[in-house]
Simulated assay, not measured.
Amino acid sequence: MSSLPGLFNLKYTPGKNFFLMAGPCAIEGEEIALRIAEKIVTITDKLEIPYIFKGSYRKANRSRLDSFTGIGDEKALKILEKVNKTFGVPTVTDIHESDEAAMAAAYADVLQIPAFLCRQTDLLIAAAKTGKVVNVKKGQFLSAGSMKYAVDKIVESGNDKVILTDRGNTFGYQDLIVDYRGIPEMRSFGVPVVMDCTHSLQQPNQSGGVTGGKPALIETIAKAAIAVGADGLFIETHPDPAHARSDGANMLHLDLLEELLVKLVRIREAIL
């Protein structure tokens, strides 16, 4: 089974630096997407961190009917494509139904399977058959070991370009907790493993119907993940989280990203 290098021209070497998936939760518009991408590209180029721009073209899993879901599929996907062409970085976006895979694959480099859908066989097969890199988020309700079967479904469908992302485990009704033993366990499957530093700090099922979060702990989650050998980090970031259209409660303010990444690079260097 192949690992990450060469899958989408990402200059990532296992055992050297970690890679970063970062961007807004959802694509809100072209201007803000390009602004966020430009800032992160500037930072990651300086720190020599391989970078993948993240943005969901649609948010299907919302607590309330009136929650923001997107600006239109094709419009958002074309913005992802423009980010790629403007800055030369790969992009990652979620898919939710099997028939979305081919559509999203026409614009994005990495197809992401949301945590709640990681056991959906038809969805995993459809993503695999696009030939794109498939990033599967570990379900909050699953052990790390059980994610081997998600990897197997994709590989047995003819695609060995797989990433696994941990985003915490359900801890009661309204909280999540991270079990860092899962990172080395999932890496043993021969695939790169990412820590989702923002969604793992969500506080779901709040009484108001809007998910809460603890963004002050993003640095803690990220440091621990790098220390135990995570290949990459997933961080949702925005220049104004309080007014982000989706998941603002657990996002990192964009102005704080560079300082955090500098610290994480030092940890990476220290453990090599």
Rank of each mutant, 00 (worst) to 15 (best):
L7I: 14
L10A: 09
K11N: 14
Y12A: 04
K16L: 10
F18P: 02
A22Y: 03
A26R: 07
E28V: 02
E28W: 11
E30W: 03
E31R: 13
I36F: 05
K39M: 00
V41Y: 14
T44Y: 02
T44P: 07
D45K: 15
P50A: 00
K59C: 03
S63L: 06
S67V: 02
A76T: 12
A76K: 13
L77S: 08
K78S: 08
K82I: 07
V83Q: 15
K85M: 06
G88N: 00
G88K: 08
G88T: 10
V92W: 01
I95Q: 11
H96W: 05
H96D: 09
A106L: 10
V110G: 07
L111E: 06
I113R: 02
P114N: 05
F116Q: 04
R119W: 02
L123Y: 15
L124C: 06
I125A: 09
A127E: 07
A128P: 02
K132M: 05
V136C: 11
L142C: 14
K148C: 01
Y149G: 04
K153S: 06
I154M: 11
V155D: 03
L164T: 12
R167L: 13
L176A: 14
Y180A: 05
S188Q: 01
S188W: 10
F189M: 07
P192A: 10
P192Q: 11
V194H: 10
Q206E: 15
T211N: 15
A216I: 04
E219W: 01
K223G: 01
A230E: 13
G232H: 06
T237A: 15
H238C: 08
D240F: 06
A242Y: 03
L254N: 05
L256I: 00
E259D: 11
R266E: 15
E269A: 10
